[in-house]
Design a protein around this nucleic acid. Structure first.
Lengths: 271, 271
DNA sequence: CATATGTGTTTGTATTTGACGAACGGTCAC
DNA sequence: GTGACCGTTCGTCAAATACAAACACATATG
């Protein structure tokens, strides 16, 4: 957790790490001035100034008056990364259809560095809260208390799940959150058996979600999808069954299309 | 253009610049392995390895097998930056309405580092090409040949426009592109007078766009909006006038809302 | 089956390069 | 007009990085 920059292996470049400290600080502070950052990061003013000048020259930071902010360059690179992701390219239209069909929130997620990241969200017409929840794409979050996260965990190699728990623990969010290894591995077993995951108020009270994984031909999990809504509605027996089928079905459709696309890569182009 | 890292002012950190060279290379190459990058960047393998390890520790790069790729961290930071932008927050729903009303493509753009960046795009029902053009958010582009870009240039201080031309020149894209200073400044004058900008096949043959700026209370231009479609349709006299009114009207609505929101900042919160 | 060439990774070492602090030049408030 | 504060510049030395060579491992090649 603390910055261990001893001369171990792999060697890590302090100057680069500090540059990203500046980036994170600019995010936390919603933009900042030189002196402010200097205090925040415990670096001399001139040093901070040099970092900001460099980041600005690289176009990842902009300067308005005397305030420095992160630039939209991050968005451009980010959109590129997202578009590179095959699950996003194939899954987006399917998720939109799922949201339309069910009327609930629909999500498309993947895993990176042991945390879950939402690639895309759409709100169906029944979904409340509307714009704010869809626009504000939240930060990477724990996998063990969301429907998308658990669907992913269920299909990751056991050793990797162990590594993730070692790294991040199993922090609780509501009283329903799974917080022990044994419980979690049991739950993952169940998810594998029945083919879908359930988030039963484990992240937010009153919210239920149904998730299903998307794996490629080699069994590697690429990510997962889910729909979510108020427990009151989600728990009605017939509706519940119907949603499960819709989610599982959509996941399968995505899976098939992804695998058709990916199999092209088995015959690499000559270059 | 070449990397002038002499000890001038402001001093720029080579290590940080090189880290972003690696980022750009990973983008260009759609992910790469150590040796590949080593050749591409003319750095020794061990050095590249250290940069990649650092970027990975910072979670901006992921490693799959032996291939390193940019991570979705860029998307998360990028979405944050976009959401910080008041023009995006206020303008997004209005642009969606504009696309629905007109049935054409609608855009929301802003300027950074002298280049134009699309904050948001929506396609109306008449718009062709559909998904690809909307999903693939392109890189920062020149301001002088788009409707959004020219609307912005027209309301930037003259000295800044001069600086931008000095930096990037006025490269042509079609035979209609404005490529001389005099022409451009005349055009910007016209745009200021009539209140909207026109991109008449200056970027893409067969495509016309109508743009209007959004400025804040102090006269600073925050960005601009536009609709675009095939010339055939866009040039029909009545329809043309109608579109202009829709665009100018939407820009005004956004402007009013932005300025109402921003005026809160004049009475800063105590902290 | 050994050998050659490829990979990513590790390490010791020379020196480039970034951190510091003081000084500069500007602005705003009192 | 004077004091405090800001962002920026610059000389200097310690520290952090780039290099190259060696390592372990894989995959071809004779």
């Amino acid at each position: 957790m603390a910055d261990e920059h001893t001369t171990g292996s792999p060697r890590t470049l302090k100057t680069v790490s500090r540059a990203f400290d500046v980036v994170r600080a600019l995010e936390e502070l919603d933009g900042a001035r030189v002196t402010e950052l200097s205090n925040h990061l415990d670096l001399s003013k001139s040093v901070v100034y040099n970092y900001l000048s460099t980041l600005r020259a690289e176009k990842f930071v902009v300067k308005e008056e005397d305030t420095y902010r992160l630039s939209l360059q991050f968005l451009l690179v980010g959109e590129y990364v997202r578009y590179q992701n095959i699950l996003y390219r194939i899954g987006k239209p399917e998720i939109e259809e799922l949201a339309e069909k069910t009327g609930e929130y629909a999500h498309l997620a993947t895993e990176q560095h042991g945390l879950g990241i939402n690639l895309y969200k759409v709100s169906g017409e029944k979904a409340v809260g509307s714009d704010y929840q869809v626009n504000k794409l939240q930060r990477a979050d724990y996998l063990h208390f969301s429907a998308t996260g658990k669907a992913i965990l269920a299909h990751l190699p056991k050793e990797r799940v162990e590594w993730i728990i070692d790294q991040y623990g199993l922090p609780g969010k509501t009283e329903a959150t799974i917080t022990t290894r044994e419980e979690l591995f049991e739950e993952l077993e169940t998810i594998r058996d029945r083919g879908y995951s359930l988030n039963d108020e484990e992240e937010i009270k009153g919210l239920q979600a149904i998730g299903a994984p998307v794996t490629n031909r080699h069994g590697r999990v690429l990510g997962s999808i889910s729909v979510s809504g108020p427990v009151r509605r989600m728990k009605q027996p017939d509706y519940h069954e119907q949603l499960i089928e819709s989610v599982v079905n959509t996941a399968n459709v995505i899976e098939v299309n992804v695998n058709m696309e990916e199999s092209d890569d088995d015959f690499p182009t000559f270059s």
